[in-house]
């Protein structure tokens, strides 16, 4: 695997190479080289099986990270090609011409993260949600809890107590309080 990665590195500059297991490597490739590299891997290095395409939201870095996980059925190992794209204007070259299955992933990613893959078939069709008017729901800044609170109404028959706070109020209410407790009391 190592020598193969070195070879690949000389062809397409790899970053963040991590040998996660003997049979699994992750590496980041520049956006403009990615589809090229993936095509090369598929056609010349026997990484013919697309296991998964995925996306991770690194909101703090302002990036989406796409993952193309490829499997080599002959050598039985995997390479995960990571591509960072801008989070503000998320767009990636479509790979639907490489595998018949990839347009579904791209359609899902469009819905779940708002990433655009120009030319990908049925990209804008609903995948799992219908009539969604919030921000794409897999983004880190979509708060499921807040959404649930405002969309559904709690029955209002539940209330919990924090043991430490409860004990303070019961057992030593006049004890001088810390800054945090003062805040909680308000």
């Amino acid at each position: 695997m190592k020598s193969f990665i070195e070879k690949l590195n000389s062809k397409y500059v790899l970053q963040e190479v991590v040998y996660q297991r003997d049979d699994l490597v992750f590496a980041a490739i520049k956006k403009e080289n990615a589809i090229d590299a993936i095509t090369y891997l598929r056609d010349y290095e026997d990484f013919t099986h697309l296991v998964l395409m995925s996306c991770v939201d690194w909101i703090e870095d302002g990036k989406y990270q796409l993952l193309y996980l490829l499997h080599n059925p002959i050598l039985k190992n995997d390479i995960g090609i990571k591509v960072y794209i801008d989070r503000e204007n998320p767009e990636m070259v479509s790979a639907h011409h490489l595998w018949k299955s990839i347009w579904t992933y791209q359609r899902e990613m469009h819905e779940a993260f708002g990433i655009v893959f120009p030319g990908s078939p049925r990209l804008k069709e609903n995948f799992v949600v219908e009539g969604w008017d919030e921000i794409p729901f897999m983004r880190r800044d979509f708060d499921t809890h807040e959404y649930a609170e405002k969309t559904y109404f709690p029955r209002g028959n539940r209330k919990s107590n924090d043991p430490a706070e409860y004990m303070r109020k019961k057992l030593y209410p006049s004890q001088p309080v810390t800054a945090k407790q003062r805040k909680d009391d308000k």
Binding site: N126, F127, V128, V129, E130, F137, M138, R140, F142, T144, H145
Partner: peptide, 15 residues
């Protein structure tokens, strides 16, 4: 067409 069983599990597990 899917989505009839979507409960956002992946998202929920993130939390």
């Amino acid at each position: 067409h899917v989505g009839y069983l979507h409960r956002g599990f992946e998202k929920l597990i993130e939390r």
